[in-house]
Write a protein that binds this DNA or RNA. Structure first.
Length: 267
DNA sequence: GGTAATGTTAGACT
DNA sequence: TAGTCTAACATTAC
């Protein structure tokens, strides 16, 4: 789940529930997922303090802690979530895969859920100096059309699917949303960026913004509020193109990931 | 039991 | 040199 729009949801959840509450304890079922610090120091540094602010960069959530220089970077890997709930609340469903828990003095806790353990938590002084952040491309929702087109044109050859997913080119877009953006733009994921004409680049920009903004508004894409014209809900179900029942979606490995697209609509 | 899964990356290959 | 491909990471669900 955790691509840009999903992490944006996590941010809202964090902001609404976790700021300015005193941390009373930190627990970790998987201590090795916390990096750049030994767990005991992590726990020691946070206990008695509170989260001051939280921001998003690409697929990262970065929390500022009052009174200390280090910040906490949450990355979710391919599976992950955040859940603020009562400490005694049973760990059902996803919560079974809680790997790190931040307990607050008010009896509630924040659960960092990470089923596949591909996620990481970094504890560092200047997050912007971490390679992952330092080498990251611009935020798609902060780019103007001109900047986006320049970004593509100043790049050497590469297929468009790889371009959208590569965090060093543009931040926060992963497999699911790159597929949706390309579907909406009717561009075949194999296309080399050098073959895109001006009109296509403009449309790509427009659809990228629309898809990401809509996804932030409605929440998880598998949900019932997913727009009728989106391809996302079909990728795990009937594999039918939402534009035409006779179009069958195709699955193919591109850039090491399974791309889903409509060979009839996307050229 | 086999396979695929919303991410990232190192190393081999082209 | 730069882009692509594959495997690896750890785990679960179907």
């Amino acid at each position: 789940m955790p691509e840009l729009p999903d992490v944006e949801q996590f941010k809202k959840h964090f902001e609404k529930n976790c700021l300015h509450k005193k941390i009373s304890d930190v627990k970790a079922e998987s201590k090795n997922l916390i990096r750049r610090v030994v767990f005991e120091d992590f726990k020691e540094s946070l206990t008695g303090h509170h989260f001051k602010s939280v921001r998003r960069r690409g697929k990262f959530l970065i929390a500022e802690v009052e009174g200390i220089e280090e910040e906490i970077l949450f990355h979710f890997g391919m599976t992950g979530n955040l859940h603020y709930t009562k400490q005694e609340a049973p760990k059902e469903d996803e919560d079974k895969f809680t790997r790190v828990t931040f307990e607050f003095k008010n009896g509630y806790e924040l659960r960092w859920i990470n089923m596949r353990k591909f996620g990481r938590i970094y504890f560092v002084k200047e997050p912007e100096k971490l390679d992952l952040i330092k080498e990251m491309g611009p935020e798609p929702l902060e780019l103007s059309e001109k900047e986006f087109i320049n970004l593509i044109e100043n790049h050497s050859r590469k297929n468009i699917k790889s371009f959208l997913m590569d965090q060093r080119d543009i931040a926060g877009i992963g497999n699911i949303y790159s597929d949706e953006i390309l579907f909406q733009t009717r561009i075949d994921p194999h296309r080399d960026i050098k073959t895109l004409n001006y009109e296509e680049k403009k449309n790509l920009y427009k659809n990228m913004k629309e898809v990401l903004e809509e996804a932030i508004k409605i929440g998880p894409p598998e949900g019932e509020f997913s727009p009728q014209h989106w391809m996302i809900p079909h990728r795990h179900q009937d594999m039918k193109c939402p534009r035409d029942d006779n179009h069958h979606l195709k699955k193919k490995t591109i850039a090491g990931r399974s791309a889903i697209y409509c060979p009839k609509c996307q050229q």
